[in-house]
Amino acid sequence: MAAFVVTDSLKQLIGQKEEPIVFKVEEGAIQRYAQAVGDSNPLYNDVEYAAGSEWGRVMAPPGFTGWPVASGFDMFKLFEKLGKAGAPAGLLDGGVEYDFLVPIGAGDVLIAVTRLASIEGRETKMGPTMVTTIETSYINQREVVVLITRNTFLNF
């Protein structure tokens, strides 16, 4: 077993930016997400409670915005591109890092700017593995960066 070797055609993709994506943070989508993950916080689930809070509106749980919910990139399209450049077919989610800079709530309009931050070759229990990190910055309607996410994916 050996570490995955990052080919030149893969290296060329490092630093590439995806087309910016614009989307609105929707109240119903927040509530469906909070229910799905089992988070009963009334700031996310209860419109009246949220209206009376310091925020005055339904807020999104940290982590609602970012891949795959309200995402700045289409992972499957991105991995098709990586696949063509030589990424192995097996794909697992490796982990995520968030910098929550400003709370996000219903009605916010965000622009997501994504770039392929790094590709590294490693050896894992799955065998030779390619580790890809994708960084997305989310900017709100007041042109403030509200969130930075770093997603790591494993191809093996």
């Binding site: 993950v37 089992g38 988070d39 916080n41 749980p61 940290p62 982590g63 891949w67 795959p68 697992l92 989610d93 490796g94 982990g95 995520v96």
Partner: peptide
Amino acid sequence: HGLLKRAWLVNLMT
């Protein structure tokens, strides 16, 4: 889903 476990950790902290 790894991301579901991640959401649990957010839930833990908040």
